[in-house]
């Protein structure tokens, strides 16, 4: 029969293990929440840049330099999309996120959607520098379409 010492040691070990589990999951939650905040900031950066482009569409004469500059921001930022969604950073009891589970369960599809954003925003940089207004307008729509396309599948819609 185990001695009193062993019972105490078992109690202490159990307590430490439980603390570790709780503490560990708390830290994971903190890390995941940080990841969510970081990617929301990145998406907002792209959103701001795209809004600047779209606001400029209202003018009959387009500002090609501005569009190229803003599109460059989008292109460069978009390179990191997949890396912003590490495993375990999805929505859970302790982490608020608008990412749908499909981001991870359909990782291949998500990567494709992210690639589309990179491709179209890179093309927008080129088209803006080339200067053809009709081509620029079309490519702006195409770039925005990649935002919508990815959101429709991988982002929880704002409540209706």
């Amino acid at each position: 029969m185990p001695s009193a010492h062993m019972f105490n040691a078992l109690k202490v070990m159990t307590f430490v293990l439980a603390l570790g589990a709780v503490g560990g999951s708390a830290m994971a939650a903190i890390d995941a929440q940080d990841a969510v905040k970081a990617r929301v900031d990145h998406f907002k950066t792209m959103g701001r840049a795209f809004k600047t482009i779209r606001d400029g569409m209202g003018n009959p004469a387009l500002d090609n330099k501005m569009i190229a500059a803003q599109a460059t921001i989008i292109r460069d930022t978009s390179a990191g999309v997949v890396s912003w969604f590490p495993a375990g950073s999805g929505p859970s009891a302790s982490v608020k996120s608008d990412a749908k589970p499909e981001v991870w369960s359909d990782a291949a599809g998500f990567a494709k959607a992210a690639q589309k954003l990179q491709t179209e925003s890179a093309k927008l940089v080129t088209v803006a520098n080339a200067g053809d207004a009709d081509a620029i307008r079309a490519q702006v729509r195409a770039t925005g379409g990649t935002c919508k396309g990815c959101h429709d599948t991988y982002r929880v819609p704002d409540k209706d």
Partner: peptide, 25 residues
């Protein structure tokens, strides 16, 4: 209002910043 997809914002959304437009939304 400014929408999340960047395609369907309100007609006066150019008058406000992206963040303010999201607030309006």
């Amino acid at each position: 209002s400014v929408d999340v997809d960047g395609l369907e914002s309100g007609p006066l959304s150019a008058w406000v910043s992206f963040d303010m437009g999201r607030q309006f939304a």
